[in-house]
Amino acid sequence: MSRRIVASPTSWLIWGAVAFFLINLAGVIASVVVNSFGERWFDTWLPSGWTTQWYATAWTEFGLLNVMVVTLEVAVLVVGISVLVGVPASYVLARRSFPGRRLVYLLFLLPILMPPITYGIPLATVLYKYGFAGHLTGVVLANLVPSIPFVILTMTPFIEQIDPAIERAARMCGAKTWQIFARILAPLLVPGILAASILVLVRTVGMFELTFLTAGPDSQTLVVALYYSMSAAGIRAQQSVDAMAVLYTASMLVLLVIALRFVNPTQLVARVKEDPD
């Protein structure tokens, strides 16, 4: 493929803007990473020495092991439940037309279209009222609200890719509905389910507002613990907050790299435009 070597001025402008964004982004990230490994860093280009002690401090001071376990528990539960509930619903919405389909679709879209705080506050109030909030159950329930619609949206293009005649063929071969799901659809949907799971995982680990509103002291996920440690600045060394932030980002990055192996980002949301109005 041949390309022009001399780019037009607009090209330069655009790539320049990208470069500017990336350089500053690198600066933002690097400053945190450097700080988390630095000893003392005042008015100089780099810290005066290097150390890993902040990671040890962060690990013990913030009880990171516990936080990590909670984060994992929440994430796995949310992913599992939202896939179990979302995939069948997504199948029906992608394949069938029935009275009220648009209304149902809108209902599933609304939680994604609303800022989490707007429904998070009343949701947390209700969860506290019934005694769910303040521990793991509440956090999981709250995180299901955006996750189920997200699974539905992610799965729709995957389901639409499957020729409906394949299900009819299975039926003509004598397969019952559950057999079609177990033997034909489930294997074909594995890539989609993996994609949806990892994306929900990333979202849940990164979801601040809902977890913040419903978590108790023992059910904080990593983001929320981070927020608390940072807003209580002054008590803790800033470097150990940075160390924790680096840990968080590193784990998210791993998840994202895995996710990108399964999902082509350019195909991700090809279907959001379907029915939102």
Binding site: D163, A165, I166, R168, A170, M172
Partner: peptide, 13 residues
Amino acid sequence: FGMVFQSYALFPH
């Protein structure tokens, strides 16, 4: 009954 589909509808996996 048995059926043959226009798109063949073979199970791809």
